[in-house]
Amino acid sequence: MAHFVQAIALGLLIGGVYALMASGLTLIFGVMRIINVAQGAFLVLVAMVTWWLWNRTGIDPIVASVVTTPMMFGFGWLSYRLLIARIRGSSPSMSVLLTFGFALVIEGVLNLTAGNKFKSAAPSYFEESFRVGAISLPKAQVFGFAAAAGVLAVLYYVLHRTWTGRAIRAATQNPSGAALVGVSAAGTGALAFAIGSATAGVGGSILSVLYPFFPASHYEWISRLLGIVVLGGLGSLPGAVTGAAILGLAETLTATYGSLGWSTLVFYLVIMAVLLVRPQGLFGARLREDAA
C-alpha cells in the first residue's frame, strides 16, 4: 500500500512539472494556432544555461529561473518577431516546419557549444527527501513541483485577471472580434509567444535538476509535451494540467507495477484511445474552423 501511495505521490509531483512545461505550448497554440515544436528545444536550452550558471557561480538551479525566465521572455519575443511573424497568414503546417527547423538549429548550436554529453545540475539538496510516514518525497521533486504550481497560478491569474490576459484570451477565442475592439493580433501573438517561451524558463531550470539532458533530449520532451496537449485538448490550460497528471501517473504506475520499457507506450495508447472517442481531446472545444 505504501508502495502504491509512493508511486501516486511521485506521479503527481512529476505531473505538476510536466504541466508547467506543457502550459507554454498550449498557450501559444491557443492564441496563434501555432504548434511550437521548438518548445522542447527551449527547455533544453534553458537547462543548459541553468547548468552553466550553476556550474560557474553555484546559483541554485531553481532560483536561476529568475534569470532564465526574463531571458526566455525576450528570446521568445525575438523569435516571434524574427521568425514566426514572417510566415503569418501562410498555412499552419508551415509554422510546424519552421519551429521544427528552429528546434534543430538550437540542438545543433548546443551541440557545438556545449558538446554532446549528458549534463545534470545537482544542488546540495538533490539527494535529500522529505519523509511523510512511510513515503519519501524527494526534495528536488517537491521544489520543482512547488515552482511549477506557482508559475501556473501566476499564469492563470495573468490570463484571467489582467487586461493583457483578457486580450490574449479574446484573441484565442475570436481573433477578428478581438481585432475589432482594438486587440492587435500581431501584438498579442508576440506577447503570447513570449509568455509561452518564458514558461520554459522555469520549466527548463527544473528539468536541469530532475533529469540528465543533452542537446538531442528535446525530441523526447517535445513528444511528451505534444502528447499531453493532444490528450488534454489543444489550446486548453486545464486540459494540459490534466493531461500532464495522467502522463505522470501512467509513467510511474507502469514503471512500478509493469515494465519501465512500456511506460511511455502506455501513455501513447491512452492518447489514441482518447482520440478514438473524443477527437478534440479531453478538454478541447471543437475549433470554429472545424465546422465546414
Binding site: H3, Q6, A7, L10, I14, S136, P138, Q141, L210, Y211, P212, E220, E251, T252, A255, T256, S259, L260, G261, T264
Partner: peptide
C-alpha cells in the same frame, strides 16, 4: 528489469 535507453526517471525503480 530492463529499462529503455531514454529513461530519465529512476525513482520508481529505486523505490522498488
Amino acid at each position: 528489469e530492463v529499462y529503455p535507453a531514454d529513461t530519465t526517471n529512476f525513482q520508481s525503480v529505486a523505490s522498488t
